[in-house]
Design a protein around this nucleic acid. Structure first.
Length: 466
RNA sequence: GGAGCCAUCGCCAAGUUGGUAAGGCCGUAGAUUGCAAAUCUGCUAUUCACCAGUUCGAGUCUGGUUGGCUCCUCCA
């Protein structure tokens, strides 16, 4: 298994800190709003990583957090009058159900910031005791970046970086411009805050991830976890700061490997809430099947930026359709054992830093080859059984192809419409048998206008929703 | 102002350590079909933004130019 490490900027052989195990931490969402396609992409990318590692025999522990204390959440509390708990639990539930619609495997550990306050407090205390963190008059606690000689190693930002043009806040009491808040003291009585030995307040954004990792992973004394993941925009300052805090508090490095996924773009620009060009996942799931979205969003390499377009999504669906058409051809049958060399080549592709393009091209090849063989020998039972097993392996590794094939092509068709379609097809078959092609073609046109395409096969007429 | 990423067929997109351009969509010719659809087969980049260099040999390395994106503010 090779993965691209965004700190060393090259592909590295994956050698976990504990044999045959992989510990992964991925930065999850701040739960103050609905998830957009960017969240989906990140989830999907690391889901692919998890599935690949599992298929290769690693015991994977995946941790994904929920940031449930944050300025934006507090603003939402003020704006809606709802409690923080009400807001965050609503969005957490939505997030989980939308990700599940995309076929994302649930993380083993899903910690929330509000449940990790003890770990956060003790880590901050450790840093204060070591004089690496300092308290200013307001009660805010800052991390002194000058105390960490390795600060900048993650993002490769040098210490004498020109900060004059940057938009880092220049608080007078900060020792260095790059120092960041570990703890934000509350300002008024009505603020949402938690009591600690240093001040009443709430944690900064970066510390929670570090604290959660220390809380949930043991590491090996050299690193806490194997892989730390997240969106490319988190590399700096978030991951740089996480690494610094953990390094200084624990005396060892946070993560052995760092992986970052590319963005989802709309018209060549990053999708983000501040730009107002977000495509919310709930809207996308209203228009398209989760599996189709998954296939599309995972169809290019996770590190590349992804330019989202609905036309491309439709084209992508056609590619997935082919897999399901093949599955239709081998249904019903019982799966035997997946073809060894097919399995190996798929795994090899994914083992190379999740080379999904190669994996998908192997699948296309498999589909064409199998269709060809079935054309020549439609009754090859062994082939059908193996084909189904291969498709099951694809589903296990890549997370698509697992549906019952007939229902896949009938998504969005209610039973009433279905009855009508089948009635029309029956009439058409009768007309065809009496060679009344005028009538049969008219019925086919009617079905086409309903968005239904039909295909005559040896086993009768099959239909699909376009 | 600083830091970084990217640029491959009409479109999407692979391309470890340099060795002579995967795959998909679209298009097209054919097989099959009453005609279609589905399926299969063939064809579809002497060329990898541009310029120069290193090399027997570069999409792959080096330098420069142009264009696009991202980070330095919350962000997946």
């Amino acid at each position: 298994m090779y993965i691209y490490d965004s700190v060393q900027k090259k592909k590295l052989k994956f050698e976990p800190i504990l044999e045959n195990r992989a510990s992964i931490y991925v930065c999850g969402p701040t739960v103050y709003d609905d998830a957009h396609l960017g969240h989906a992409r990140s989830s999907l990318a690391f889901d692919l990583l998890t599935r690949t590692l599992k298929a290769k025999g690693y015991e994977v522990t995946m941790c994904k957090n929920f940031t449930d204390i944050d300025d934006k959440i507090i603003k939402k509390v003020e704006a809606t009058g709802k409690s923080m708990e009400e807001i965050t639990s609503y969005y957490i539930e939505r997030y989980l159900s939308e990700m599940s619609a995309l076929g994302v495997t649930r993380a083993n550990i899903e910690p929330k910031a509000t449940q990790s306050l003890q770990a956060i407090e003790s880590m901050i205390k450790k840093l204060i005791d070591k004089d690496i963190a300092y308290i200013i008059s307001t009660g805010d606690v800052y991390f002194d970046t000058s105390k960490d000689s390795n600060y900048g190693n993650i993002s490769h930002r040098v210490a004498n970086d020109d900060d004059s043009k940057s938009r880092i806040e220049h608080t007078s009491q900060k020792r260095n411009p790059k120092d960041f808040a570990l703890w934000k003291a509350c300002k008024g009585d009505e603020d949402i805050c938690f009591d600690t030995t240093f001040s009443k307040g709430r944690p900064g954004w970066h510390i929670e991830c570090s604290a959660m990792i220390e809380k949930h992973f043991e590491g090996n004394g050299e690193y806490s976890i194997d892989i730390h993941g997240g969106g490319a925009d988190l590399l700096f300052p978030h991951h740089e700061n996480e690494a610094a805090q953990s390094r200084c508090a624990t005396g060892h490095e946070l993560s052995k490997y760092w992986m970052h996924n590319g963005f989802v773009q709309i018209d060549g620009e990053k999708m983000s809430k501040s730009l107002g060009n977000s495509f919310f996942l709930k809207d996308a799931l209203n228009l398209y099947d989760g599996e189709v979205l998954r296939y599309y969003l995972n169809s290019i390499h996770y590190r590349n930026d992804f330019n989202f377009s609905e036309e491309e999504l439709q084209l992508s669906k056609r590619r997935l359709d082919k897999l399901y058409r093949l599955k239709k051809r081998v249904t019903p049958t019982k799966a035997s054992v997946a073809n060894k060399s097919f399995k190996k080549s798929l795994l090899d592709a994914m083992s190379d830093d999740l080379n999904i393009s190669i994996a998908l091209s192997l699948i296309d090849e498999f589909i064409a080859n199998t269709n060809d063989l079935l054309d020549r020998n439609p009754k090859d039972k062994a082939l059908k059984k193996e084909t189904l097993a291969n498709i099951e392996f694809i589903d296990e590794l890549l997370g698509f192809g697992g549906k019952e094939p007939f229902s896949y092509f009938q998504i969005g068709v209610n039973s009433e419409l279905k009855e009508k379609i089948e009635e029309l097809i029956e009439k058409r078959t009768e007309a065809k048998q009496s060679k009344d092609f005028k009538t049969s073609d008219a019925i086919r046109d009617e079905l086409t206008s309903m968005g239904i395409s039909i295909m005559d096969s040896a086993n009768g007429t099959l239909w699909e929703k376009a």
